[in-house]
């Protein structure tokens, strides 16, 4: 599937804009920016404080980051929808394109690659070439075995997708901070919550 020309098939008239252009346009013109170092430092201080608070029990730190991300995700989805007014995605493939080209672009200015689809097309991976959360970070030896530094992103995706009636599991498979080849997040769709879909959609 071509990675740069997934179009939104919403218009009955007028030019079809690609998701990539759409996401780029919103990032460039419609969102306020902050200093990248401040962002990295703020996140870093959260992770390091959690490690201290949980006395270096990294499983608990991972869960806490996930929970924090979930709370962010359930709120962030409203901002995303209000800003973009994108229609409901027809398939998981379209969802993955929207996540990669619009959501990540608008909020983090990165465009992860989508790949590694499962056989029955119910799971995919996002490969982050750059990760603004973890610039300049080096994990200590004990953390490098258990901590998923950017686990907050998994929580954000889970929370946001749940609010649009997609029950998904999101987890890290690989992280360059832990010595892996790439930073890879896996998203698996468990089910569409049909009974929670708001009335009035086709």
């Amino acid at each position: 599937m071509s990675a740069n020309s997934a179009s939104i098939s919403a218009s009955s008239a007028g030019p079809k804009k690609s998701l990539k252009t759409f996401g780029d346009d919103i990032w460039k013109n419609k969102t306020a920016k902050i200093n990248a170092e401040l962002f990295t430092l703020t996140y870093g201080s959260i992770v390091s404080q959690l490690c201290t608070d949980f006395e270096r029990d990294f499983k608990k730190v991972n869960s806490q980051l996930y929970a924090m991300g979930y709370n962010i995700g359930v709120r962030l989805i409203e901002d995303f929808l209000a800003r973009t007014a994108l229609p409901r995605c027809d398939s998981l493939a379209q969802t993955s394109e929207v996540i990669s080209k619009c959501a990540f672009k608008i909020f983090l200015n990165v465009t992860p690659q989508v790949g590694n689809w499962s056989n029955n097309k119910d799971a995919f991976s996002l490969f982050l070439d750059e990760n603004p959360l973890s610039d300049f970070v080096e994990l200590p030896m004990d953390a490098a075995k258990e901590l998923w530094y950017s686990n907050i992103l998994c929580g954000v995706l889970r929370g946001a997708l749940e609010m649009v009636q997609m029950d998904c599991d999101v987890w890290f498979v690989n992280d360059v901070l832990r010595g892996g080849q790439s930073t890879e997040m896996r998203v698996k769709l468990n089910r569409i919550m049909k009974d929670e879909i708001p009335a009035g959609e086709d």
Binding site: A10, S11, G14, A82, R83, A85, P87, R88, P198, A199, G200, E201, D202
Partner: peptide, 13 residues
Amino acid sequence: FFNESFPSWNQSG
């Protein structure tokens, strides 16, 4: 806030 036409999420309700 936005400057393009947009689809409605509420087609038949």
